[in-house]
Design a protein around this nucleic acid. Structure first.
Length: 628
DNA sequence: GGCGTCGAGCAT
DNA sequence: GATCATGCTCGACGCC
């Protein structure tokens, strides 16, 4: 789906297939006057439309979705063999088995398991095994299965770059014309298209785009690569990381032998294939990515498949369009000009390196950048220049001059769109969290948790969007003002804390800010007592918060005790939120959290840190280090 | 061996 | 045709 920018005399005909449960799109504006509410097919909650349209308007759905039957999820995996044990090629090497598993959204147990295999195969309990004497029939059975079971989601591991392209290529070389009718729209065929996705945040990744119109294709490897940093992204490594479960133990070189063996060896292969189809389901169930992604699509108003196929910007601009439409703003279609200009970012306080055997309190600004934008009304729509100020006769009390020297009107003259969006996101997150607390049903809890997460991420990405010089709507005045305020705030926090908590003011020790990065400060209050430091930390956070405009808030989060500060962005410590027991050992930036060295380094550093921080055995750690 | 540059990978 | 930001450390590498 594209976003129309201007009215056009040429009607644009588009065919929509939208599942309302996942995007929250409810209105299609056909022309200036008529706003049709599409007929919702209540049985599956989908709309199919062919319209000439001028613009599309989205808003979150108000309907009660619980009456609608649950979404169906299919996961699948294929096996193929090659002549010479090389990597199989679709032009000559056959597909020998396909495993499909169906599960209803919100349930963890599959309601159907199915294996299609070439040649005969021993039965598998709880699974339908279908044997075929020719590959063409096997492939067509897959298409038939997809259409009959009619899944809303199609999952798998690396299906976009392997399984689907392989199946499609294979069907082509076997001249199977009907194989690629896998979607819900009649005359739309499934194709694998090459795409290159390149982003500063996610890096450049070549991928394929496979369309099953009306169904959502979700390759779990992409989800894991985006959301988790792991040393290996093989299905085996990912399964053992999340589920403590491994793939069936079958070496690739054994596959041809197992296939050419007998019914029982083919059964073994089928079990392997089946497991590879089940594991993605289990992983997605475990990390709850479907809940989280559906909520993200609804919060931002972008179609589900954009979440993996595209970057962060489209989500922000979608929200901006939604709000701008409500408030009757036009958004200019800017020409992007690549500029290498960089603006100044955040402050990192020079660390007072060393080992601290006293509790160190950590105070954090809650959502620093969003709260700055709200507090100072920073927005595209509130940005001023000296000419405008004199033209509108604005008084000094009507606008803010930011530390970077930019001008923005104050909210009593005009409230910005970005601050409103942020307020909506943050209050929606508060509501979601409150509901989450009350909720007892696990599926609804997962949904609410996904929602609050989506709202948090959305709020935090607005700042990055304004600073993206290669973006749709960059505004350096906003982003440099945000970081400038941030720098000023962390400096002020340091000053205020050290000015107040010292011997001269009747405290037992002089407090010192030993480190800080962007939105956090680490304070050594000097006391040995964890409880005392926590109380001082809480008090200091309210004290400093009172110095700033709402909704800026400094919060006491935790204590580190003991604390090993090695360098900027490199430290370790025991993490305490209660006085009786530490929560965990927390390590930042050190070799234990980096993936660019070998395991030995990681375990060695980890072991030494544990000896120093937990066992308090520095000598032992030294010996251990030298021993290696 | 010291110095500068570059890229990876992290912190926020 | 699309791509959120900057700050920082550390190791690899080239050079003399």
């Amino acid at each position: 789906m594209t976003y129309p920018t201007y009215e056009s005399n040429i009607p644009v005909v588009m065919r929509f297939m939208i599942d309302l449960r996942m995007t929250g799109m409810c209105w299609i504006q056909v022309d200036k006057r008529s706003c049709v509410q599409p007929q919702i097919n209540a049985s599956n909650c989908q709309i199919e439309y062919e319209v000439s349209y001028k613009s599309i308007y989205c808003h979150p759905p108000e309907q009660e979705w619980s009456r609608i039957p649950p979404l169906r999820i299919m996961s699948f995996d294929i096996e193929c063999i090659s002549e010479s044990n090389a990597f199989p090629e679709a032009e000559k090497d056959p597909v020998i088995q396909i495993a499909c598993v169906l599960v209803k959204f919100g349930q963890s147990e599959p309601y159907s398991r199915c294996v299609f295999t070439l040649n005969s195969c021993s039965p598998i309990s709880g699974t339908t095994v279908k044997s075929f004497d020719c590959e063409r029939k096997l492939l067509m059975a897959f298409t038939e299965f997809v259409n009959l079971s009619d899944p809303d989601f199609v999952l798998g591991y690396n299906i976009l770059n392997f399984d689907f392209p392989y199946l499609l290529d294979r069907a082509k070389s076997l001249n199977l014309d009907e194989f690629d009718l896998l979607g819900r729209l009649n005359n739309f065929r499934t194709r694998a298209k090459d795409t290159i996705f390149s982003s500063k945040a996610y890096g450049t990744r070549e991928s394929k785009l496979v369309n099953l119109d009306g169904r959502i294709v979700l390759d779990l490897i992409q989800v894991i690569q985006r959301d988790y940093k792991l040393r290996s992204y093989s299905l085996n490594a990912v399964s053992s990381h999340f589920l403590n479960e491994q793939k069936e133990d079958v070496a690739h070189s054994m596959i041809p032998d197992l296939f050419r063996g007998n019914d029982d060896t083919r059964k073994r292969l089928a079990l392997y294939c089946l497991k590879d189809a089940i594991l993605p389901l289990k992983i997605s169930d475990h990390i709850m990515c479907l809940y989280n992604y559906i909520e993200m699509a609804r919060v931002t108003g972008v179609p589900f498949n954009y979440l993996l196929a595209r970057g962060q910007q489209v989500k922000v601009i979608s929200q901006l369009y939604r709000k701008a439409k409500e408030d009757s703003y036009f958004i200019p279609a800017l020409k992007v000009e690549a500029s290498d200009e960089q603006y100044e970012g955040a402050t990192v306080i020079e660390p007072d390196k060393g080992f601290y055997n006293v509790p160190i309190a950590t105070l954090d600004f809650a959502s620093l950048y969003p709260s700055i934008m709200m507090a100072h009304n920073l927005c595209y729509t509130t940005l001023l220049d000296p000419k405008t100020i004199s033209a509108y006769n604005l008084k000094e009390s009507d606008y803010t001059i930011t530390p970077s020297g930019d001008y923005f009107v104050k909210p009593h003259i005009k409230k910005g769109v970005l601050p409103i969006i942020l307020e909506d996101l943050i209050s929606a997150r508060k509501r979601a969290k409150a509901e989450l607390k009350k909720e007892t049903d696990s599926a609804k809890k997962a949904c609410l948790d996904g929602r609050q997460l989506a709202l948090k991420i959305s709020a935090n990405s607005v700042y990055g969007f304004t600073g993206a010089t290669v973006g749709k709507l960059p505004c350096i005045q906003i982003s440099q003002s945000v970081t400038a305020f941030g720098r000023q705030m962390i400096e002020l926090t340091k000053e205020e804390v050290e000015k107040r908590y010292n011997v001269m003011n009747g405290y037992l020790h002089d407090a010192k800010v030993i480190y800080g990065d962007t939105d956090s400060v680490m304070i050594k209050f000097g006391s040995n007592s964890l409880e005392e430091v926590m109380n001082l930390g809480r008090e200091a956070s309210t004290f400093v918060t009172s110095k700033f405009i709402k909704p800026i808030s400094l919060e006491f989060e935790k204590c580190y005790y003991p604390y090993l500060l090695i360098n900027k962005k490199r430290y370790a410590g025991l993490y305490w939120t209660k006085c009786d027991q530490y929560d965990k050992m927390d390590t930042k930036g050190l070799e234990t959290v980096r993936r660019d060295n070998c395991r030995l380094v990681q375990t060695l550093v980890d072991k030494c840190l544990r000896m120093i921080l937990i066992d308090r055995d520095v000598e032992g750690a030294k010996e251990y280090w030298i021993f290696f």
